[in-house]
Design a protein around this nucleic acid. Structure first.
Lengths: 200, 200
DNA sequence: CGCGTTGCTAAGCGCTTGCTTAGCTTCGCG
DNA sequence: CGCGAAGCTAAGCAAGCGCTTAGCAACGCG
């Protein structure tokens, strides 16, 4: 586990059977998507009968929500930590690097977080949407700060904010640890690319 | 329909009922995903009974393949057209602009093209993968040309190629015509961002 | 010990899925 | 007019779905 990305430990999920179901669901949702994953598949991955799932979670959707919520919170946390101190350029580079590395290192959870939003209930979607707006605001603010002190040149602020985030998020779509570089060098490359996009 | 993006007409799909099924399937797959879309839903959108679908297509997967194949071909075509003539910078800007605009303007098909690959049969996937490699090669070549003539500075060629493509592709994920700028200005913004990423 | 709680399984319910079958109508064409 | 092809529908099949029910073993605690 790298230093720049949060450990994403699941120890807080108790008991162990509930944790096995959750991590099994992450793998299944990431591989096949939420709709194509069956509760029987999740239960089998956790080494249980299908009915045991409902002892720990009231529905398949709830399992998705727990994963999505925890994943969004983890992503916001590593961004917030990276935003601490330094010039706008330093903060932008640290945030893009951390956010990119996180999407590479945790690409299974990241895939669920980024591509299964439509499967959430309206109420659950609203809850993670709040976190998504906070993430977006962090990037927009550092770009604003850089423009204000003259180190950045940004023509379209919302458009560029979206582009910077988009670049990191799409890593979850294509990243394959067997075929691509380690997460940390990728983060450095993307920090460089994002910095160039906004440099004055 | 803008000048930089191909018209994406479906007139070649005959008879009209087959075309209605295909366009209905695009909308349904883009909205809900392949797995969550039922053949009954597709048939209803085309104004027919569920069985009528099988008069024109042998399976739901085949419908996806026809959409995916045509979409990939259209994307490759507009990229190839934009690659014609000028400096590496001109060609890169033209390709990124066209590719981005295409993903925004045709974001429903683009969503199917980019996010439903896993639902294709292995044989059908192999066929579109060939087109995807051709797309990637076009971008890699223009970056190579720019590095060679000294107008670009690229540290990691495959990584930067992927990043440039990634930036445009992710547009399909978030683009909403009711909330975002028109496709053509977006293409111009992204051409600028991509150019800055590689400028010497 | 007695007994409620926790965690699990076997069985299965009601429903929906992709797709098939049988049969009807419409049409072009000799 | 006769007839095969094309295009469609009503009905339904086998399989698989999310989830429920009934019941059992293990455990903590008075």
């Amino acid at each position: 586990m790298s230093a720049v990305t949060s450990p994403l430990a699941w120890e807080h999920v108790q008991p162990a059977a509930a944790r096995r179901l959750l991590t099994g669901a992450i793998d299944a949702f990431a591989e096949r998507g939420f709709q194509a994953t069956t509760t029987r598949d999740i239960a089998t991955r956790a080494g249980m009968s299908p009915a045991a799932l409902y002892v720990h979670y009231p529905s398949k959707e709830r399992l998705l929500f727990e994963i999505s919520l925890y994943g969004h919170r983890a992503a916001l946390e590593i961004l917030t930590a990276a935003n601490d101190g330094g010039s706008p350029a330093d903060r932008l580079r640290a945030m893009v690097s951390a956010f990119t590395s996180w999407h590479a290192e945790h690409h299974t959870i990241a895939r669920v977080v980024q591509y299964e939003l439509a499967a959430l209930s309206p109420e659950h979607f609203a809850e993670v949407a709040t976190i998504r707006r906070a993430i977006s605001t962090l990037i927009e603010q550092v770009l604003t700060d850089g423009v204000t002190n003259g180190t950045f040149k940004v023509d379209d602020l919302p458009g560029t904010t979206l582009a910077v985030l988009s670049l990191s998020i799409d890593v979850a779509r294509w990243y394959d640890p067997t075929r691509h570089p380690a997460a940390e060098p990728l983060g450095t490359l993307y920090a460089d690319l994002a910095h160039r996009m906004v440099q004055a």
